[in-house]
Amino acid sequence: MPESAPHVGLTDIHKSFGHFTALDRVACSVASGEVVALFGRNGAGKTTLLKILALLMRPTSGDYQLQGESARRRPDRTRAQIGFISHSTYLYADLTAFENLNFFGTLYDLSDREDRIQRALNDVKLWDRRNERVRGFSRGMQQRLSLARTFLHNPSLLLLDEPYTGLDPIATDMLDRLIERCQGEGRTVILTTHNLDLRLRVVSHVLVLEKGNVVFDERGTGFSPKQFTEIFRAHVDEADE
């Protein structure tokens, strides 16, 4: 990657669905190792932006660079660097926990698959339940397994779409610790939320999206929930709520 290139660079990303504009010339950059909190109301375009970053969706126009290269030039290489968490667990309910991770491990061409799976399942405290079908897991356990799936291939860019939705307190703590660990390991994290009561201490970059536009983009340290609320209120037109 070029010396000065950001980890993620977006230039004039535009996405429309028919006459509806979801993203309107979004431009921003994210440096390696940053933890970005992307705020916005429901329908502001947060999920659309994350799907474009994860190559789940094509922008109508605009350029998306990952580590200085066009992300779509070598899509498989881009995908191998991305971990994505959403409110859906992305798991196969009739496979066991181990089989799910083994399946995805094969798709990611992981050579030391079994070791990685053991580590990942231990991290989310599901190793003892590895041979049970996911269908029998509680929602919290499924979310923990989903975390294990996301981290299995050691992604350098983590995209978290409303990751706290539906998490029990144990999984919430686990996710907080994983994000803090990612920050410590120099990985880039972009998380979307409309919950301003975000307790993460490691957020280093705040973006606010409103009606498909980036209306706030600032770096800093030690953001508090109170600051998030102030930023949000100052930049989002509450009259439309």
């Binding site: 992305y90 798991l91 990611y108």
Partner: peptide
Amino acid sequence: AIERENMSIQALMLAPVD
């Protein structure tokens, strides 16, 4: 429908698979 449950089709799409 198997792929729609838990939206696992998106996990396939996220993986580096043609």
